[in-house]
Computed example of a mutant assay.
Amino acid sequence: MKLVVIADTHMPKKASSLPQRLLEELPTADLIIHAGDWQEKWVHEKLSHYGEVVGVYGNVDDEELHTQLPEHTIIEAGGFRIGLTHGHGDKKTTEKRVLEAFEGEELDCIIFGHSHLPLLRFVKKTMLFNPGSITDKRGLPFCSFGILTIDETIQAHHIFF
C-alpha cells in the first residue's frame, strides 16, 4: 500500500498549481493524505481526481474546510493506526502539541504539518512524520512531500524537489 503524504500547500497564496514532481506520484497512490493548510477547498477537489483523499484542517484554512474536515483524526491503513493532525496551537513545540493531541491512543504513526520542516523520527514506538511543504520550503533548499509504504511494516521517506 502506498500513501502520498502532503501538508502546507498554501494554495493559491504560495502556488497556483500542484508541482509536477507530486503529480508524478499521485496516480500510483492508494491513499492521499493532507495534514492541513490547504488554504482553499479546490486543492482537495484537485487531489480527489487522483484517488481517495483524507485530511484535516490547518490554521490558515478557510471556514468551509473547517466545517468539512476534522482538526485531527485516526485512520487505519494496512493494519496500522495513523493519527493525522496539522499541529498548530499556542505554546509548546509543534511536536509536543501533536503528541498531546493523541495522548492515550496507541498509534503506529502520527502525520502532521504546520512547521513546513520535513521530519521523520520515533517517540517510543510511534513514528512522527512531517512531509514538509510542496510550495513553501521556509529557507530549506528544497520543497518536499512524503511517501508511506505499508506491507508488514510501515516505512516513510521524503521526496525533495
Rank of each mutant, 00 (worst) to 15 (best):
K2G: 00
K2E: 04
V4H: 09
V5C: 02
A7K: 11
D8H: 12
D8P: 10
D8C: 03
T9K: 08
M11G: 05
M11V: 10
K14Q: 10
K14Y: 04
A15W: 00
L18P: 08
Q20P: 00
Q20A: 12
L23D: 02
E25H: 11
L26P: 09
T28D: 01
T28E: 07
T28I: 04
A29E: 03
A29M: 09
D30L: 04
L31Y: 02
L31Q: 05
L31S: 04
I33M: 08
H34V: 09
H34C: 02
A35H: 07
A35L: 03
D37R: 02
D37F: 04
W38M: 07
W38C: 06
Q39R: 07
E40K: 03
V43F: 02
H44R: 11
K46Q: 08
K46H: 04
L47W: 05
G51R: 07
E52N: 10
V53H: 02
G55R: 12
V56H: 06
N59G: 10
V60H: 06
E63H: 00
E63A: 01
E64M: 00
T67M: 04
H72R: 14
A77V: 00
G79D: 06
G79C: 12
F80Y: 11
I82V: 12
G83M: 01
T85M: 09
T85C: 05
G87E: 08
G89E: 05
D90M: 01
D90C: 01
D90G: 07
K91Q: 03
T93I: 01
T94A: 03
E95I: 08
E95W: 00
R97M: 06
R97E: 01
R97P: 01
R97T: 03
L99R: 13
A101K: 15
F102L: 12
F102M: 09
E103Y: 13
G104A: 10
L107Q: 05
L107G: 10
D108L: 11
C109E: 08
I110W: 10
I110N: 10
I111L: 15
G113L: 01
H114L: 02
S115V: 06
L117S: 13
L117N: 14
L120N: 15
L120E: 15
R121K: 13
K125G: 13
K125Q: 14
T126K: 12
T126V: 14
L128R: 11
F129Q: 11
N130P: 00
N130Y: 05
T135C: 15
G139H: 00
L140V: 00
P141S: 14
P141D: 15
P141E: 07
P141H: 08
F142R: 14
F142A: 09
C143G: 13
C143Q: 15
F145W: 06
T149P: 08
D151S: 15
E152N: 13
T153Q: 14
Q155M: 15
Q155H: 14
A156G: 11
H157S: 15
I159P: 08
I159M: 06
F160R: 15
F160H: 11
